[in-house]
């Protein structure tokens, strides 16, 4: 596939992925990503027009769970790894909507 990432796309992808975009490293990152895309470009040779996508190796169906409260929530244990947890809340820098 002659699809190659450019710096702008890399920046856009970084924003979507919440990863830092560092212009001084961008050439190196781009080269690495484009190498992967090159590898992937082999897929272009495959005739797939009439092939439905396969999302999951097991073509099976979901089983449904009865509507019952089965969890007792130990919020102390669940929040033990939180970097900023006070008064029952997880805190982040102020969000402006």
């Amino acid at each position: 596939m002659s699809t190659h990432l450019d710096e702008k796309t890399l920046r856009d992808m970084s924003v979507l992925a919440a990863l830092p975009y560092e212009p001084n490293q961008s050439m190196e990152t781009l080269a690495a990503l484009n190498e992967v895309l090159e590898l992937v470009s082999a897929l272009e040779a495959v005739e797939v027009d009439n092939v439905p996508p396969l999302a999951h190796p097991l073509e099976r169906f979901q089983s449904l769970t009865p509507d019952q409260v089965t969890e007792t929530v130990d919020s102390e244990a669940l929040s033990q790894n939180a970097p900023n947890f006070e008064d029952g809340l997880y805190f982040v820098p102020r969000v402006i909507e």
């Binding site: 596939m1 699809t3 990432l5 796309t9 890399l10 856009d12 992808m13 970084s14 979507l16 992925a17 990863l19 990152t29 990503l33 992967v36 895309l37 992937v40 897929l43 272009e44 495959v46 797939v48 092939v51 439905p52 996508p53 396969l54 999302a55 190796p57």
Partner: peptide
């Protein structure tokens, strides 16, 4: 980043969609 790109608007069909079809093959 590769995965984000493969799912992004305008590239999904050529990358993720195609890969899933190849997976079936």
């Amino acid at each position: 980043l590769v995965g984000t790109f493969a799912l992004s608007a305008g590239y999904y069909d050529a990358f993720y969609g195609r890969a899933q079809r190849v997976r079936r093959l």
